[in-house]
């Protein structure tokens, strides 16, 4: 059954359809959350919060074809909320790690180091565009921003990313 039909039913209050939709999206939400918080438990918490918020407000979704976009928007906001609440802790953990293991070559570190160097907005756009492979149009919908500003955020992010990646190469 296609997503739109399921979303239509979910909006009308059908729980099974809602569950099916979530099952199809939960990995994406988890990966995105994980790339923000880098911690399994916290990422799971964000998934739970996202599903909860989606469940209590699904009736407000007017266009079923935007279910995925809508859910991603909720997930992004949940992740940002989560980060804001625990900002200090992350900051403290992050700093020593960076200075003690500079330029570690493992890919996983590269990913996070690179993402770390970005501001919140560019990070979100990069993750969605290159890691989740979402079209720019969808990203603009998710962030509720004009396509042009999403593009400029993306270019800014890429620019910065390039510099950061080069720097870490120098160090290594």
């Amino acid at each position: 059954m296609n997503v739109e039909v399921l979303a239509e039913r979910a909006i009308a209050g059908d729980e099974d359809s809602f569950t099916t939709l979530i099952q199809g999206m939960q990995e994406r939400i988890y990966r995105m959350a994980f790339s923000y918080v880098r911690n399994k438990d916290e990422a799971l918490e964000i998934v739970q919060e996202t599903v909860y918020k989606a469940y209590i407000s699904i009736h407000k979704l007017q266009q079923p074809q935007y279910f995925a976009t809508w859910l991603t928007r909720i997930a992004v906001n949940c992740a940002l909320d989560h980060i804001r609440k625990s900002q200090k802790i992350i900051y403290m953990e992050k700093e020593p790690e960076r200075s003690y293991v500079p330029g570690q070559k493992e890919e996983i570190i590269d990913l996070y180091e690179a993402l770390d160097g970005l501001d919140e907005k560019s990070r979100m756009v990069i993750v969605m565009r290159y890691l989740e492979d979402l079209p720019l149009k969808d990203i603009a919908e998710i962030l509720e921003q004009p396509l042009s500003s999403v593009k400029s955020v993306l270019y800014r992010g890429l620019e910065k990313l390039k510099i950061n990646l080069e720097e870490s190469e120098h160090l290594g």
Binding site: E15, F18, T19, I22, Q23, Q26, E27, Y30, R31, F34, S35, K40, L44, E45, V47, Q48, E49, T50, V51, Y52, A54, Y55, I56, E107, I108, D110, L111, A114, V127, Y130, L131
Partner: peptide, 27 residues
């Protein structure tokens, strides 16, 4: 490389349970 690392993020077994819990809380 970033994409690779991203796709390598391990999906924990508890993921479905977390989603279900979200639905439960919603109910």
């Amino acid at each position: 490389m970033m994409q690779q690392a991203y796709n390598d993020i391990e999906i924990p077994q508890e993921l479905s349970a977390a989603a279900r819990k979200g639905i439960e809380r919603g109910k």
